[in-house]
Amino acid sequence: MTENIRSFPGTPLSEQDFEEGKILFNYDELNGKFSWDTGIAIGSYLAGLKNGVILGSRCSTCRKTVVPPRTVCEWCFRPMQEYVPLHDTGTVNTFSLCYVTWDMKRLTDPQIPAVIEIDGASPLHGIMHLLKEVDPQKVHIGMRVKAVWKSAEERTGAITDIQYFKPVKEV
Protein backbone atom coordinates (compact mmCIF):
# COMPACT_ATOMS: atom_id res chain seq x y z
CA MET A 1 0.00 0.00 0.00
CA THR A 2 2.37 2.70 1.21
CA GLU A 3 5.10 1.39 -1.04
CA ASN A 4 2.93 2.57 -3.92
CA ILE A 5 2.40 6.05 -2.56
CA ARG A 6 4.61 8.36 -4.52
CA SER A 7 3.81 11.71 -3.07
CA PHE A 8 3.31 12.32 0.61
CA PRO A 9 1.57 15.58 1.53
CA GLY A 10 3.33 18.66 2.93
CA THR A 11 4.46 21.95 1.40
CA PRO A 12 8.05 22.89 2.23
CA LEU A 13 8.92 26.59 2.27
CA SER A 14 12.28 28.36 2.18
CA GLU A 15 13.28 31.49 4.08
CA GLN A 16 13.20 33.21 0.69
CA ASP A 17 9.47 32.52 0.37
CA PHE A 18 8.99 34.60 3.51
CA GLU A 19 11.41 37.34 2.51
CA GLU A 20 9.95 37.75 -0.95
CA GLY A 21 6.37 37.85 0.30
CA LYS A 22 5.36 34.72 -1.59
CA ILE A 23 3.31 33.64 1.36
CA LEU A 24 1.45 35.47 4.09
CA PHE A 25 2.57 35.22 7.68
CA ASN A 26 2.64 37.15 10.93
CA TYR A 27 4.67 37.39 14.12
CA ASP A 28 3.54 37.25 17.69
CA GLU A 29 5.02 36.75 21.11
CA LEU A 30 3.70 35.14 24.22
CA ASN A 31 5.18 37.77 26.53
CA GLY A 32 4.84 35.46 29.52
CA LYS A 33 6.28 37.09 32.63
CA PHE A 34 6.30 35.23 35.90
CA SER A 35 7.10 35.63 39.53
CA TRP A 36 7.62 32.19 41.03
CA ASP A 37 7.36 31.59 44.76
CA THR A 38 10.70 30.15 45.83
CA GLY A 39 8.97 27.66 48.12
CA ILE A 40 10.20 26.13 51.35
CA ALA A 41 13.28 24.18 50.31
CA ILE A 42 14.52 26.27 47.40
CA GLY A 43 13.84 29.45 49.38
CA SER A 44 16.10 28.10 52.11
CA TYR A 45 18.67 27.01 49.49
CA LEU A 46 18.81 30.59 48.18
CA ALA A 47 19.08 31.98 51.74
CA GLY A 48 21.98 29.53 52.25
CA LEU A 49 23.72 30.73 49.09
CA LYS A 50 23.42 34.31 50.36
CA ASN A 51 25.35 33.14 53.44
CA GLY A 52 27.93 31.39 51.31
CA VAL A 53 26.65 27.88 52.06
CA ILE A 54 25.37 25.17 49.69
CA LEU A 55 22.47 23.54 51.46
CA GLY A 56 21.20 20.00 50.95
CA SER A 57 18.49 18.06 52.75
CA ARG A 58 18.57 14.61 54.26
CA CYS A 59 16.22 11.66 54.46
CA SER A 60 17.39 9.46 57.32
CA THR A 61 15.11 6.61 56.25
CA CYS A 62 16.83 6.33 52.86
CA ARG A 63 20.14 7.67 54.20
CA LYS A 64 20.24 10.05 51.32
CA THR A 65 21.43 13.65 51.16
CA VAL A 66 20.19 15.51 48.14
CA VAL A 67 21.05 18.88 46.61
CA PRO A 68 19.31 21.25 45.98
CA PRO A 69 17.26 20.54 49.11
CA ARG A 70 13.65 19.46 48.92
CA THR A 71 10.94 18.92 51.50
CA VAL A 72 9.96 15.39 50.56
CA CYS A 73 12.03 12.32 49.74
CA GLU A 74 10.91 11.02 46.36
CA TRP A 75 12.19 7.52 47.20
CA CYS A 76 10.08 6.86 50.32
CA PHE A 77 7.74 9.87 50.11
CA ARG A 78 8.41 10.77 53.75
CA PRO A 79 9.24 14.35 54.72
CA MET A 80 12.96 15.15 54.65
CA GLN A 81 14.23 15.48 58.21
CA GLU A 82 16.83 18.21 58.08
CA TYR A 83 18.76 20.70 56.06
CA VAL A 84 22.44 19.82 55.76
CA PRO A 85 25.12 22.38 55.03
CA LEU A 86 27.39 20.84 52.37
CA HIS A 87 30.92 21.69 51.31
CA ASP A 88 31.51 24.13 48.48
CA THR A 89 33.81 21.65 46.78
CA GLY A 90 32.94 18.78 44.52
CA THR A 91 33.81 16.48 41.64
CA VAL A 92 33.02 17.02 37.97
CA ASN A 93 30.48 14.31 37.02
CA THR A 94 30.31 15.49 33.42
CA PHE A 95 30.94 18.66 31.43
CA SER A 96 30.58 20.20 28.00
CA LEU A 97 32.49 22.84 26.04
CA CYS A 98 29.70 24.89 24.55
CA TYR A 99 30.44 27.11 21.55
CA VAL A 100 26.92 28.45 20.98
CA THR A 101 24.39 30.41 23.00
CA TRP A 102 20.72 29.49 23.15
CA ASP A 103 20.03 31.91 20.28
CA MET A 104 22.82 30.27 18.26
CA LYS A 105 25.39 33.04 18.55
CA ARG A 106 28.88 31.57 18.18
CA LEU A 107 31.37 31.78 21.07
CA THR A 108 35.14 31.79 20.54
CA ASP A 109 35.84 30.81 24.13
CA PRO A 110 33.51 28.04 25.17
CA GLN A 111 31.23 28.15 28.15
CA ILE A 112 31.89 25.08 30.31
CA PRO A 113 28.70 23.83 31.93
CA ALA A 114 29.16 20.89 34.26
CA VAL A 115 27.31 18.65 36.65
CA ILE A 116 29.25 18.85 39.91
CA GLU A 117 28.77 16.22 42.61
CA ILE A 118 28.85 18.29 45.79
CA ASP A 119 30.95 17.00 48.71
CA GLY A 120 28.69 15.96 51.55
CA ALA A 121 25.78 14.97 49.31
CA SER A 122 25.13 11.32 48.40
CA PRO A 123 27.13 9.89 45.49
CA LEU A 124 25.98 11.10 42.05
CA HIS A 125 24.03 13.97 43.63
CA GLY A 126 25.11 17.19 42.02
CA ILE A 127 24.08 20.54 40.66
CA MET A 128 24.60 22.16 37.30
CA HIS A 129 27.00 25.11 37.22
CA LEU A 130 29.77 26.64 35.12
CA LEU A 131 33.53 26.06 35.25
CA LYS A 132 36.06 28.87 34.73
CA GLU A 133 39.72 29.61 35.39
CA VAL A 134 40.56 26.38 33.62
CA ASP A 135 42.01 25.43 30.24
CA PRO A 136 39.04 23.91 28.37
CA GLN A 137 41.26 21.19 26.97
CA LYS A 138 42.26 20.09 30.47
CA VAL A 139 38.83 19.77 32.02
CA HIS A 140 38.05 16.14 32.78
CA ILE A 141 35.45 14.02 34.46
CA GLY A 142 36.53 13.37 38.04
CA MET A 143 38.27 16.75 38.34
CA ARG A 144 38.07 18.30 41.82
CA VAL A 145 36.56 21.79 41.85
CA LYS A 146 35.67 24.53 44.31
CA ALA A 147 33.05 27.28 44.27
CA VAL A 148 34.14 30.86 43.62
CA TRP A 149 31.70 33.06 45.52
CA LYS A 150 30.69 36.64 45.06
CA SER A 151 31.60 38.81 48.04
CA ALA A 152 29.13 38.73 50.95
CA GLU A 153 27.86 42.22 50.06
CA GLU A 154 27.19 41.26 46.44
CA ARG A 155 25.29 38.06 47.22
CA THR A 156 21.54 38.29 46.74
CA GLY A 157 20.29 34.78 47.38
CA ALA A 158 20.62 33.34 43.88
CA ILE A 159 22.44 30.45 42.22
CA THR A 160 24.67 33.12 40.64
CA ASP A 161 25.99 33.98 44.14
CA ILE A 162 28.42 31.23 43.15
CA GLN A 163 30.11 32.88 40.17
CA TYR A 164 31.53 29.59 38.94
CA PHE A 165 33.56 26.60 40.04
CA LYS A 166 37.31 26.35 39.45
CA PRO A 167 39.81 23.54 39.83
CA VAL A 168 41.06 22.93 43.38
CA LYS A 169 44.56 22.46 42.03
CA GLU A 170 45.77 24.63 39.21
CA VAL A 171 45.85 22.89 35.83
Binding site: F34, D37, T38, G43, S44, A47, G157, A158
Partner: peptide, 13 residues
Protein backbone atom coordinates in the same frame (compact mmCIF):
# COMPACT_ATOMS: atom_id res chain seq x y z
CA UNK B 1 11.25 21.42 57.05
CA UNK B 2 10.50 25.12 57.20
CA UNK B 3 11.42 27.99 55.01
CA UNK B 4 14.40 30.00 56.18
CA UNK B 5 12.83 33.30 57.29
CA UNK B 6 15.52 35.12 55.31
CA UNK B 7 14.58 33.38 52.06
CA UNK B 8 13.90 35.49 49.02
CA UNK B 9 10.17 35.02 48.55
CA UNK B 10 10.03 35.01 44.78
CA UNK B 11 12.16 34.58 41.71
CA UNK B 12 11.18 36.35 38.51
CA UNK B 13 11.61 35.26 34.93
Amino acid sequence: LERDPKSPLTWSG
